[in-house]
Amino acid sequence: MAELAKTSEAVHRDYTGAKIGMWLFLFTEILLFGGLFLVYAVYRTKHQADFHTAAAELSVAIGAANTMILLTSSLTMALAIAAIRRSAKTASIVFQSLTILFAVIFLVNKYFEWGAKIGHGLYPNSPELLAQSHGTILFYGLYYVMTGLHALHVLIGIGLLLTMLILTVRDRITNTDFVKLENSGLYWHLVDIVWIYLFPLLYLIT
């Protein structure tokens, strides 16, 4: 162990430092989405009734399904890290691939959900939407921007996880050097957390 610590020193490998950096980055993400949540809170306060009727148009089933998909992907992510810790490379690769798969399924669902709404003429600045009340316009604006920004994060997450997958296959991520995977996991869980709040705020307004 002392031997290991010595070599770590030599290559400037500071795991705690790397994780602090990652957490600080996540804080900026919290504030980034936080700005949107503030916009949401203000407009929802002003347009209670409109938000209620507009939200009723969204499919709770798809929303709930996507929530469960993301939660499950968080599980497989955590298991992928646990696996690499005990040197189970194959298991880690399987769990990482599953995480990516769930992320893709999430986006496919999202695609059909958006597609259906756009098919009904409900998208920003559409004549259909502009004919509705102010609250409805703002609700759909928030719906598209919030889920859109979240989907962008999912997309970036997929890219990140694919990179980690390649690094794991090539033995660049191992049971002694896995902080990259752990940090990618932190990012992925944050994407999950954002969705944990988005789901009730957009789909379950009563």
């Binding site: 599980l75 992510m77 752990e182 869980h189 957390i193 944990i196 789901f199 009730p200 379950l204």
Partner: peptide
């Protein structure tokens, strides 16, 4: 809804995010 979301978040933070 927000309370439940916060409980879920706490679980993710404490365990999944170590």
């Amino acid at each position: 809804a927000l309370a439940i979301a916060t409980v879920k978040t706490t679980l993710v933070l404490l365990f999944f995010m170590h």
